[in-house]
Design a protein around this nucleic acid. Structure first.
Lengths: 113, 113
DNA sequence: CCCGGAACCTTGCCTCGCAAGGTAGCATGT
DNA sequence: ACATGCTACCTTGCGAGGCAAGGTTCCGGG
């Protein structure tokens, strides 16, 4: 509990899910691609052990649909695509996120001058 | 799974802890007071069942110290006060939070114009 | 003297991120 | 042909932390 790598871990909870949805908003992607995107574009580095169960949940919730596609070189890939329900969920999150973020900013940020 | 109360729950993870530290930064407070403060000042409503275990952790980590004080009317209250280590932890969180918040904003926020 | 409320705390459950490990398909070198 | 290595998929077991529900103690008022 010192110097704390696990701080980020706790923060990711609940947001990672919607970051994945956001990444799928304009483009279909496959699992490994998502891991690298999350690591590059953001500080939300995660692992396959996190992502695949997460993707299963999204599928079960009906927020994404999947299709298998051949790879130019290597085993086939499962591509994930946002559904209508997925877009709704993402929209809901966006508004919730703003509220939450501002609340934390207000308490944590401005309390000390 | 619609309209989703549990969304906020997941977001609170990992931040609630530091919101409590922030509330204690300028003023000692007691348990029930913290619950009401969190509910009023913010959208971070929580319950005693969440808060007391959390406060125990903070005490064990050495981030807060406690003193019992009599209430003007009712049972005695345990007041929580921020320690030096607590202030350091809060400072660490502040920087981590900014990084995290901006990462989420970048992915989730700007993707739609 | 009892009852209600304030204030403290505990128990058990569930979710989710993670490390570690496992399998299968495809390409390349010999 | 077959061994090796890479890509891509997925599962298992664990731990942390929020929450609902329930329990206990202390005080004041009727």
């Amino acid at each position: 509990m010192e110097a704390w790598p696990g701080l980020g871990t706790a923060l990711r909870r609940g947001t990672l899910e919607f970051c994945v949805l956001a990444l799928l908003e304009n483009e279909s992607r496959y699992g490994v691609e998502l891991v690298t995107q999350l690591a590059e574009q953001t500080s939300l580095t995660t692992s396959e052990g996190t992502l695949y169960p997460l993707l299963s949940r999204l599928r079960r919730a009906g927020w994404v649909a999947t299709t298998w596609q051949e790879s130019p070189s290597g085993p086939p890939r499962r591509y994930y695509e946002l559904t209508g329900q997925g877009k709704e969920a993402l929209a809901r999150f966006r508004s919730e996120w703003v509220t939450f973020r501002d609340a934390v900013d207000r308490i944590v940020g401005t309390e000390q001058t």
